[in-house]
Amino acid sequence: MPSTRQITEFSDEPAAGNPWVVEPMPATIELVEYDPVWPTQARQIGDRLSELLGLRAIRIDHVGSTAVEGLPAKPVIDIDVTVADPADEAGYVSRLQEAGFVLTVREPWWHEHRLFRGGRRSDDRVAPTDGGPATNIHVFGPDSPEPIKHLVFRNWLRSSASDRKLYADTKRAAAAAQRDDDAVMDYNARKQTVILDIYERAFRASGFLS
């Protein structure tokens, strides 16, 4: 279990290497209004992951903006999967890849994070073949603070109409400001100040900060 300090702090440490297993392609940020089908799609993906990974999957959680009713979002389902040891790739990578989820990012220096992409979208250099909705599967270990952060942020936005509106307005403004050479990280950077403000309120509401 990560400490409260690990959960509530954010680090800007640079990457310790090239995280890309599959290099990204330039893509326009597509922001769409909330689609009520997203929770159903997330449950279906979660069920599939549970079937593929069995007891290897300690937790499977729908996170990100598609998990918050009323939020506009990129039409990509974000799923956090917690496994005992993400570095033990023999225990799960082939199962996911054989099912059409492509290992795209490997970041052993950042909580042993692995990212798999599923579904089909315009910015795939190697198009996944699982045929489902566009999906990001984030794999972390039980000591990582990231899945807890994601759940705290999601739950707060579900409960706070004012911060939900603030975040929705911020996302629309960030998408509208994109340039032809932008990457997803540029879009995310334009939201960062507001995200950190919302996180502080979320941490206080959930008891991580007094």
Rank of each mutant, 00 (worst) to 15 (best):
T135M: 06
T135S: 07
N136F: 06
N136H: 15
N136I: 06
I137E: 11
I137A: 09
H138R: 03
H138S: 12
H138I: 03
V139L: 13
F140T: 11
F140D: 08
G141L: 13
G141F: 11
P142W: 04
P142F: 08
P142S: 12
D143S: 10
D143I: 00
S144P: 11
P145M: 04
E146W: 02
E146P: 09
I148Y: 10
I148P: 01
I148D: 07
I148W: 04
I148Q: 11
I148F: 11
K149S: 11
K149G: 08
H150K: 15
L151F: 06
V152F: 09
V152T: 12
F153T: 06
F153L: 12
R154I: 03
R154L: 05
R154V: 07
R154T: 09
N155W: 09
W156Y: 15
L157G: 11
L157Y: 10
L157D: 06
R158C: 13
R158M: 08
S160A: 02
S162D: 15
S162I: 07
R164C: 05
K165D: 10
K165N: 15
L166W: 04
Y167K: 10
Y167W: 12
A168D: 02
A168Q: 05
A168R: 02
D169L: 09
D169R: 00
T170S: 10
T170K: 12
R172Y: 13
R172E: 06
A173G: 06
A173P: 01
A174K: 07
A175M: 01
A175Q: 01
A175R: 00
A176I: 01
A177F: 05
A177V: 00
A177P: 03
R179G: 01
R179K: 13
R179D: 04
D180K: 15
D181M: 02
D182A: 08
D182I: 10
D182G: 07
D182V: 08
D182W: 12
D182C: 10
A183D: 12
A183F: 14
A183L: 13
V184P: 00
V184C: 03
V184W: 03
M185L: 05
M185K: 09
M185Q: 13
D186M: 03
D186Y: 03
Y187H: 07
Y187C: 00
Y187W: 02
Y187M: 02
N188G: 09
R190Q: 06
R190E: 10
K191A: 06
K191T: 01
T193V: 03
T193E: 14
T193Q: 15
T193D: 14
V194N: 11
I195V: 15
L196Q: 04
D197C: 03
D197E: 15
Y199R: 07
E200C: 02
E200A: 09
R201S: 14
R201A: 11
F203W: 02
R204M: 04
